[in-house]
Amino acid sequence: MGVYIFYLFGTGLIATSIVAILMKNPVHSVLSVVSSFFFLAGIYAGLSMQFLAVIQILVYAGAIMVLFIFIIMLFDLQKSEYSKDRFLWRDLVPLALILITAAGFISAISRSESIKNYVANAKLPSNFGSVSAVSFEFFGTSNSVGRFSFLFEVISILLLSAIVGAVVLAKRKL
């Protein structure tokens, strides 16, 4: 069952991502990226990471891409300003490189004994992917520190500095 969910959403994810690159109209591209986020969330949900799936929709599809659309709307692009790039044969070179690298990765992963052993012996906790399991890893309990507490706090400080930077840039005179 899980495998079929993965193939279904994986196909959709690749298709919408390709459409996002090929579209000339930036709004069409953004919509395509948004739908690819939904497919990605579907893959997360199929891996029983429901919290991550909802956060993917909430943060990326619901907030960040809305800002993209907002900015494209304010630019008010005309048809004449769309990208005029034509297809060139040399564009196939990076594509071929990507495909070769991906094939290498896939064959390495599928042959690795340690990964096979890990998958065969992996046991998920019953609440895997739920809000409580994720928050346990981040914050721990009242007596212990979670595995990622330190990293979580470091990332918070990084985001805080980004906010301060944005405010300083926006207001030259504080």
Partner: peptide, 11 residues
């Protein structure tokens, strides 16, 4: 749904 209200915010 364990993430309950977050789903409401998302949609």
């Amino acid at each position: 749904f364990d993430s309950g209200m977050l789903l409401a915010f998302a949609f």
